[in-house]
């Protein structure tokens, strides 16, 4: 395995992006950063600027008003970039299917690499999603 790939797997920096969901998945993503499951042991750091991130962690369904912003933030992140959809809303709009202002899951606006269902997923499930993404990356 070459060095660059190894480095990419070992240091995914995360951008936290709520695209219009309830708070549930947000706080579970943050809870994954907290002492209980501490994802810094996988090298994950929460970044404030899209320019520094590798992995966009999206929560919530895409609302009409948020779509352009999401696309813009996605474009701001430098290549290579990955997207994780956290929660049932981010996968398929979940309980909000049929809301007039909701477009659907995150994949309606930007390509998604890993879906983590759950409402909200347990922090461990989020860790599991990250591990699956990294495994996928390793094998590619």
């Amino acid at each position: 395995m070459d060095l660059v790939k190894w480095a990419r797997i070992k240091s995914p920096w995360v951008l936290h992006l709520n695209t219009g969901g309830c708070n549930g998945c947000d706080i579970e993503v943050l809870a994954a950063l907290m002492p209980r499951s501490d994802v810094e042991r996988f090298g994950i750091l929460l970044q404030g600027s899209p320019r520094h991130a590798d992995l966009i962690v999206c929560q919530g369904p895409i609302t009409k008003q948020m779509r352009d912003r999401v696309v813009r933030i996605y474009e701001q992140v430098p290549e290579p970039k990955f997207v994780m959809a956290i929660g049932s809303c981010a996968c398929t709009a979940g309980v909000f299917q049929g809301c007039y202002n909701v477009l659907g899951g995150i994949d309606k606006a930007i390509p998604v690499d890993v879906y983590v269902p759950g409402c909200p997923p347990n922090p461990a499930a989020i860790v599991d999603g990250v591990m699956k993404l990294l495994t996928k990356l390793k094998e590619s």
Binding site: G20, G21, G24, G60, M66, F96, C99, Y100, V102
Partner: peptide, 25 residues
């Protein structure tokens, strides 16, 4: 309202039982 979804309107098309889970979210 970046997260305006239209829940109040959606609630009108769900049963009371389903609405418990909708308003929860």
């Amino acid at each position: 309202a970046y997260s305006h979804r239209g829940i109040e309107k959606l609630a009108e098309s769900k049963t009371y039982l389903q609405n418990i889970y909708l308003v929860e979210r």
